[in-house]
Simulated scan of single mutants.
Amino acid sequence: MIGNIEFKKRRDFGQVINDTFTFMRQNFKPLIKVYFTFCGLFVLASMLTMLLQQYKMVNIINNIGDVRNTGGLGFGSMYGFEYFLSILFSLATYASMSVAILSYIAIYVQKGNQTPTTDEVWGYFKYYFLRIFGSSFLLMLLLGVAFIFCLVPGFWLFPYIAMIFPIMVLENATLGYAFNRSFKIIKDNFWITFGTLIVVWIIVYACMSMVILPTSIFNMIGMFTHKTPHMSVTLTMITTVLQSLCQVFTIIPIITISLAYFSLVEHKESTGLMERISNFGNTEKPIDTRPEEY
């Protein structure tokens, strides 16, 4: 039987992936509880604004070419107040999810690999949420601009930006410090970090696609079997709701980047190894006895 996951240890590519799902399996119920407790309101707000935006888009597409029904408005009218609200609440959802799960992990590590309580997570959440939420605007803007320039700069920045939120929460750092720290710890380990995140995100998107694929296919079939462009309002609404619910899968890459963070810090500074040496003989703190690879 595998004991509780020890975060402060070096891991290779496969160990990070495997321990991500092991930790998810061992802490599934408390993680889901934390997710819905601290992120549920933001997920609901994001879902409602996306429903409004999608409903507006479907009506425009279904009435395309009919000036009387569209009021003379084209596709540009889709980018209205609802569209920007959906972006705002989507960022708030991801920020709240990142803070909630990273707070859970931070307390889990501090308690010696023991499950945190909701009150303990709340103490962290209310302290870090606004800091992470505000930082997310700057980081998304930076990443968006990088992707515009031939995609390559965006992919290069991706692992560095992904590492910033764990540093901010786990080290109680500012955005500026976390940005520089991210480059420092990923240096010489870029490809393994990049590859690990890409593989995990592919798994996450595959899981999401399996959930929303049926309604999306039926909607596309209905759209192309009509003489004029036509989308089903019902199927579009169902797909949007499923997309919002599927955001729960984003817990997985947050765990992955946290494991990668501890692994990289251990590789650079060996803090976990020194801690285990100092605690040698102390049986009160459970220790993962699986062999490490150095």
Rank of each mutant, 00 (worst) to 15 (best):
G72T: 00
T49A: 09
R131Q: 08
V34I: 07
V233D: 14
F89T: 15
V200R: 09
W201K: 07
L102S: 13
N282V: 07
F165C: 04
F280H: 04
T256F: 03
Q15Y: 02
G71W: 02
Q15G: 12
T70H: 00
L151D: 09
F28T: 01
M274N: 06
F13C: 01
G272Y: 02
R25Y: 12
F158C: 04
L88I: 13
G281C: 12
T256E: 01
E266I: 00
M274L: 14
I212E: 13
V265Y: 00
A92Q: 14
L91Q: 08
N279T: 07
G65I: 04
T117M: 02
N189Q: 12
G222H: 06
A173R: 14
T271A: 04
Q15N: 08
F179N: 12
K227V: 11
M50F: 08
F42G: 01
V169M: 10
L197V: 05
M208K: 15
I185M: 13
A178I: 07
E275A: 09
P229S: 02
A95L: 11
A95N: 08
G71Q: 03
N69Y: 00
R276H: 03
K111G: 04
T115P: 02
L138A: 15
V204R: 08
I287W: 08
Y104A: 11
E82L: 08
S135A: 15
C150K: 05
T239H: 12
G112K: 11
Y205E: 13
I257E: 04
I101D: 10
E171N: 09
L139A: 05
S46T: 03
N69S: 04
H230R: 02
Q15A: 13
V265E: 12
K56M: 07
I198A: 03
I202H: 01
K126T: 13
G195Q: 03
N172T: 11
T37Q: 07
S232A: 12
P159I: 11
F28K: 01
G281W: 14
Y177H: 15
T37K: 05
F165G: 02
Y35S: 08
F23D: 00
G195W: 05
V16Q: 03
D19K: 08
S86K: 10
F249P: 01
S216K: 13
Y79K: 07
N27P: 00
G154L: 11
